[in-house]
Design a protein around this nucleic acid. Structure first.
Lengths: 224, 224
DNA sequence: TGTACATCAGTGAACGCGCGTTCACTGATGTAC
DNA sequence: TGTACATCAGTGAACGCGCGTTCACTGATGTAC
């Protein structure tokens, strides 16, 4: 039941064992290994030797694909950000599919709330990846960095912007309040996420965390 | 111009040089050294050997006062939290002293806003300490941990709670909105802090960051 | 007031560890003739 | 279609590093008589 990928024998789980001298897709394998490490230990756990070990390769082989450990970590961080984007997109899709077709304003509002709900869900389900996504900041705010985007080609920040635009278009947010609104919404949701992931709210049950998330999003809708 | 502290010769800056066999106040010196390390490198920089080096002592001397590196880091984290509390208290005191005596409601509101402003000021001025304060979460939410408190004996979380109580007492916050309000306010302010310290808003100028903070606090007042 | 002694804070030397990174290499792959 | 060769992905061995932690020790301090 092994799967061949360019000369790689990948057991269905655990580390790969190669049958060929060449690996074939080492760069991706290292990023994937890095994600696995980050999932459990956050950015500090993205250790070059551990990643190569998991890819079934000698440590210095990584240097064919990354300048140094920082470059690997950066790639992993971008990949984690892309996963965040995908979770947000999935949440939006789910919300859109669920109930009987509502009016356009209700749909825009649901899309906005799904942005926050998806963000929080990702933080709770994948705290290690969440922390890793935000570890190498760069400028993901403005740049449309494709490697940090989800299926729609939008980064998390761009998804939020689009949702806010939807609120304005449907008269749910006055146009003069639009500028800078992403930072207000983002701060509130990101803060709850940080408190849940790292901080003193770490012990909350998933249902409690969900409720807290809905309350925070309520506050944003009122206060934005 | 050296100052004697229990047999310790402390140069006005830099690392201490002892004249006596005994140090006299090593526990405090290690926490202080840890704070200095954390200030520049966050929690990861709180390295046992570096702290003892800075205290002018052999590495294993630390084990007279801390069970292991984690215990030292925890103490440093608590100390950082206490500094956060003091910054918030200082901000409140400043606000209270400034303008002509306003009515009680305005004072309560100013005290509330000062909680957030002080929190954000600390995050910007001392990002390393801010990250360190939140690195070992424990349960500072509920426990009145004296070592994490400021001059008033209140932890940051308790300062926020008291400010919210003040809003209720002065009719600025409906009583039925009070429960859980600290988590809404905290999330929003903490999120902006995290984005400023670690995240994509890291490059903001102090004045821009201040404006963003005031907007977030405005949102909280509206949406809470 | 003076001496003997217990306490325990800090010393000195050493350990094993995993890390990132370097070097000169080997051998599979794809291209040119 | 078959052979020679350049390319470059992965190997193997080694390095120096700072780390946390352990051990048996030494000597300053404070207390009991």
């Amino acid at each position: 039941m092994d799967v061949h990928v360019g000369g790689v024998m990948a057991a269905e789980s655990g580390r790969a064992k190669r049958t060929t001298y060449r690996h074939g897709d080492l760069r991706n394998a290292l990023v994937e290994a890095g994600l696995e490490l980050a999932r459990e230990g956050g950015p500090e756990a993205v250790v070059l030797r551990a990643a190569t070990r998991q890819a079934g390769v000698v440590p210095n082989a990584a240097y064919r694909h990354f300048a140094d450990r920082g470059a690997l970590l950066h790639a992993v961080s971008q990949a984690a950000m892309a996963r965040l984007a995908r979770t947000m997109e999935a949440e939006q899709a789910e919300q859109a599919a669920l109930p009987p077709a509502p009016d356009a304003a209700a749909a825009a509002r649901a899309r906005f709330r799904a942005v926050g709900t998806g963000y929080l869900r990702f933080a709770q389900e994948e705290p290690g990846l969440f922390r890793t996504a935000f570890h190498v900041p760069g400028d993901m705010t403005y740049a449309a960095d494709a490697t940090a985007a989800g299926g729609s080609g939008k980064t998390p920040f761009e998804l939020l912007g689009a949702a806010l635009d939807g609120l304005v278009e449907n008269g749910l947010l006055p146009e003069d309040r639009r500028p800078g609104a992403e930072f207000l919404a983002w701060s509130a949701v990101h803060g709850l996420a940080a408190l849940l992931v790292d901080g003193p709210l770490r012990g909350l049950l998933p249902s409690q965390a969900h409720d807290a998330g809905q309350h925070v999003i309520d506050m944003i809708e009122r206060g934005i």
